[in-house]
Amino acid sequence: MAELNFDKVLASLKLRLNEIVDEAEFDDVLKEYTGKDSLLSVERKKLSTLSKDDKKTYGEKLNNVNNSITSNIKKAEQEFINKKYTSLENEENEDITIDWITRSGTHRHVISQVMDEVVEIFASIGYKVAFGPEVETSWHNFDALNTPDWHPARYESDTLYTDHNLETLLRTQTSTVQIRHMENNDPPVYIVAPGRVFRSDQLDATHSPVFHQLEGLAIDKNLKFTDLKGTLEYFVKQFFGENIETKFIPHFFPFTEPSAEVLVKWNNGEWLEILGCGMVDPNVLDHVGYSKEYQGFAWGVGIERLAMLKYQIDHIKNFYENDLRFLEQF
């Protein structure tokens, strides 16, 4: 019996596989070598003419060849695909050190971000945002806050007025919102009032005619100095981090008593003032007609000051020039 030269078949398969340029050809090759019209198929047809022993031997051999062809093709196909992916991936080689999108900030002004952050902290312990006018009566800005008419803060050199009788002005402190809110709402009161305040200063590195404060006010039955301490310590830790050291030193504000300043210990060991606060003076509560069973505390914090500390900004003018180089950093 003339056996097919299987080595020759396998050799030709190898050549054929090397020529493949498209993934789809592998199916064709498989058909060519094992399909209906393949040499292998022709040989298989001959099996029925062979003796039982020969049939078994040659049959096994044909099977082996078939397996060998199939596995060669599978293997070649796998290699072909792997090679294709590898070369695809090799082609993709961007320089990731190029920043095509160089402006990465949140697009919110840093003052607004700091205000939001402070509001968020107080909102988490039950405070709501209150709002009051920026052009105010002198009464709300000074008298109601226990600042008598001879007080130096009322001089035109410090305060911007909007009428010649000095009865309306651009508020110099957000404490006015305390009064507005209490005039229109019954206790208990837990509010924060972020907003603009105004002073007669030229815009330069350390001054601005416009800046931002956040005023806080809590009035309830049984609010005490210890509550004031706990509240502001909570805020400072939330804003600057759990490990910040805080101290309270006595101070004077016309509309709180006792009054204090809160200092935090900065990285360089320096103590920095960040807040003014105190128990609301009984006169203020009288002015708005609250009953004597209510008392509480108030505080004020400078937003620019917090922003300057947090981001190490050294120039107040930056906040109001709105130079994109500044805006896009935050």
């Binding site: 509001v119 909102a123 039950g126 709501k128 210890t226 509550d227 509240t231 006595p250």
Partner: peptide, 17 residues
């Protein structure tokens, strides 16, 4: 002032800013 205890009261506006 630094010898006083600290307590944290919670306000009445937990639902809305």
């Amino acid at each position: 002032f630094n010898n006083f205890a600290s307590t944290l009261p919670i306000g009445n506006n937990l639902n809305s800013k």
